[in-house]
Design a protein around this nucleic acid. Structure first.
Length: 292
DNA sequence: CGCCCTGTTGGGGA
DNA sequence: ATCCCCAACAGGGC
């Protein structure tokens, strides 16, 4: 479930509950979660340390512990962090005792989630620098920035949006929503967006993510239900998973296709299909990609 | 009941 | 640069 808005919501709700507390006992029940470290090694590194801060970078949850020790957690598809769940949920992969009778359960039915140990802020920054681009909600995420990233790219704009090394935090759902709001077909080559389309896409990407965050004014109860969260927010989406339904703007039936290997929903009236969706640009007219 | 497909993600190999 | 497949599991369609 975690795209940027979900992880942001987890941070906001969980931080007040864990910051200042100590990870008194950590049990990692699934070796896949802690790889490449053995569960015991990672648990030992975390155990006994106070949580100084809980933050987010892209879709990563970042635990800042005492003595410059950091845990970078990714929830992937089905991960969740539950506070004081009762009873302990099925598929609990990590169990953490916080003291004073409180505990956390990291739950992850599909077992894609990971927790990585980093032993300095430098290592932390290097980790993110290698994986993540600018946050859409960063003030530096300007039209020009987006335009520079897109310049010369032949890949479909949806693949471009999903590439975390360029833009951090946009997942499959919000990519569909942002493109719909911008009136841009997901197959349009990123490098062929007009200035106006870049401006619009920047705007709608921010708006879609912010809407997702706003929609989760959630209560602490959300941590008690693994599946309860997304269900209640499903109907805020304009196109995603609305195959066969009429577009809210024009009534055209929403269609589903596969782009960038992901299920993709589109109103092909509001988002006109590019004439040559995978067309190559001639060498002569191609401008060099922006550095980095 | 079994088989097949799908999925909120990211990494690695081709 | 880009594309495809895979990790592991649950749920739905047939």
């Amino acid at each position: 479930m975690p795209e940027l808005p979900e992880v942001e919501t987890i941070v906001r709700q969980l931080a007040p509950l864990v910051v200042g507390r100590t990870l008194e006992r950590v049990e990692i029940l699934d070796a896949r979660w802690s790889r490449p470290l053995a569960p015991g090694e990672l648990a030992d590194a975390l155990q006994g340390r106070r949580v100084e801060r809980l933050g987010r970078r892209g879709k990563y949850l970042v635990w800042g512990l005492e003595e410059d020790v950091h845990l970078v957690q990714h929830l992937r598809m089905t991960g969740a962090v539950l506070f004081d769940p009762d009873p302990e949920p099925l598929h609990t992969r990590v169990r953490i005792e916080l003291g004073q009778g409180h505990r956390l359960a990291i739950v992850d039915p599909r077992r894609f989630g990971t927790g990585e140990l980093l032993l300095s802020v430098q290592a932390l920054e290097a980790f993110f620098a290698a994986r993540l681009g600018l946050e859409p909600l960063d003030e530096l995420f300007t039209i020009e920035h987006l335009r520079g990233l897109a310049r010369g790219r032949a890949a479909p704009v949806k693949a471009f949006l999903l590439d975390q090394r360029r833009i951090a935090g946009v997942g499959n759902i919000y990519a569909d929503e942002a493109l719909f709001r911008a009136g841009i077909h997901p197959l349009r080559p990123a490098g062929r967006l007009s200035f106006e389309q870049c401006a619009r896409l920047r705007e709608t990407t921010i708006a879609a993510l912010q809407a997702g965050i706003d929609a989760r004014g959630a209560t602490i109860d959300d941590f008690r239900h693994v599946d309860g969260v997304r269900g209640s927010f499903q109907n805020q989406f304009l196109v995603h998973r609305r195959e066969g339904e009429p577009c809210g703007l024009c009534g055209t039936t929403i269609v589903k296709m596969v782009v960038a290997g992901r299920g993709t929903y589109v109103c092909e009236t509001c988002q006109p299909r590019p004439r040559f969706s995978r067309a190559r640009q001639s060498v002569r007219s191609r401008r060099p990609p922006a550095p980095r």
